[in-house]
């Protein structure tokens, strides 16, 4: 299984760099993944999305859709695209330490 180093920490990842073991996730790793994805710093709104995604994943076994993020009042679709430019759900899931989302919408 591929591994990746973030600072002094080594984590297990899949071929695309998504964490395969959520227990290895930390906020520091999230920030490092975010930088790789072109997000210089995670602000409070980013964290709100990341935490909601982790909660949903824990409950349903998959990352929430954009629609669900919007309907649950966590973040509007427009803001989500602004916060995670160039692929909001994929990027947010990666930062949150979840597997790559599989849904079409």
């Amino acid at each position: 299984m591929p591994q990746k180093n973030y600072g002094a920490t080594t984590v297990d990842v899949d071929a695309e760099g998504y964490l395969t073991d959520f227990s290895q996730w930390t906020r520091e790793i999230a920030s490092a993944v975010a930088r790789e994805e072109g997000i210089a710093e995670l602000g409070p709104a980013h964290w709100k999305v990341v935490e909601f995604m982790q909660k949903e994943f824990k409950e349903n076994g998959q990352a929430p859709s954009i629609r669900r993020l919007n309907k649950s009042g966590v973040i509007t679709t427009k803001e989500l695209y602004e916060l995670f430019p160039g692929g909001p759900v994929k990027k947010a899931a990666k930062i949150a330490g979840l597997k790559k989302p599989e849904g079409c919408v």
Partner: peptide, 10 residues
Amino acid sequence: IMSNGARMEG
């Protein structure tokens, strides 16, 4: 679905 999916991929 295809246009939304495109945006989701940047």
